Simulated scan of single mutants.
Amino acid sequence: MKDIYIVLIKAHTGLGAAARRLTHYPYTHIALSLDRSMTDFISFSRRYHFFPFESGITHEYRHYYAFGKHKDFRAKIFRLSVDKEHYEAVLSYIAECMNDRDMRFNLFSMATMPIIGGFRIPHTENCMSFTARCIELSGCAELRRPFWKYSIKDMDELLSEHLLFEGRIRRRNAPDDGYMTPFTPIRFLRGMIKLFAELTKRLFTGHGAK
């Protein structure tokens, strides 16, 4: 058997704080880890802290979640013990997403999840849909509706019997990998316009669908 960890994260971001006020639920980000030490995480997320629209599937690390004055972050961890066949199915899906340069971050679905339950755009994922698909492929829980309709809170409830840990995880110092690249308004706006335009095109034309 192999272990897969589903990690719910209370994000120290402005968007995270806004989401908590709207939903009255503490966890605003979700990731998968194959690493029991909780050093390396995989998710659909921003690749740079100050540029949320430059997003996609990426590896994340503890200093992405606890930065600056923050020494730790709150997390809830579930352990899924899976057989070889299901483990390889999850790995295959992760590799497919990693190797697909045409995959985009579904910001629109993420933003509307608390209101209308999100919606599908061809050939896109976000942290919730990506993780829910991995849970589905693991065979450890039965999804009773399409995976992209699952919120973080839904997955919290779905995996309750697999709870391993809830509490604070300490930050670890790491070499500068560019995640905290300084903010510039032009880059921020350029990223926003590019992502919005691509998602709108796919929403109405189906471009990018396989």
Rank of each mutant, 00 (worst) to 15 (best):
Y5V: 00
Y5T: 00
K10P: 00
A11E: 01
H12G: 01
H12Q: 07
T13H: 03
T13E: 04
L15V: 12
R20Y: 08
H24W: 13
Y27N: 12
Y27V: 11
A31G: 06
S33W: 05
R36V: 06
S37I: 01
S37A: 09
M38N: 09
F41Y: 08
I42Y: 15
S43W: 00
S45I: 11
R46A: 03
R46V: 03
H49P: 10
H49S: 14
H49E: 15
H49I: 15
G56C: 09
G56V: 12
H59T: 13
Y65F: 14
A66S: 10
F73T: 07
R74Y: 14
K76E: 07
R79S: 03
K84N: 15
E85Y: 08
E85T: 12
S92Q: 15
Y93V: 02
E96T: 14
C97Y: 05
C97H: 06
N99G: 13
N99C: 09
D100A: 14
R101P: 01
R104F: 08
F105P: 09
F108K: 07
M110C: 12
T112I: 01
M113N: 01
M113E: 06
I116L: 10
I121N: 05
P122L: 01
H123R: 02
T124Q: 05
N126C: 01
C127E: 04
S129D: 07
A132S: 08
I135F: 01
E136M: 10
C140A: 15
L143M: 11
F147W: 12
K149H: 14
Y150L: 02
I152N: 07
I152W: 09
K153F: 13
K153Y: 10
D154A: 10
E161K: 15
L163Y: 06
L163I: 06
L164G: 03
F165T: 12
G167E: 00
R168V: 08
I169L: 14
P175C: 03
D176F: 05
D177W: 07
D177A: 10
D177M: 09
G178S: 04
T181G: 05
T181M: 15
T184C: 11
R187F: 06
L189T: 06
R190V: 11
G191H: 03
G191W: 04
K194E: 14
F196G: 02
L199P: 05
L199I: 07
L203T: 10
F204I: 14
T205R: 08
H207T: 13
G208A: 05
A209E: 13
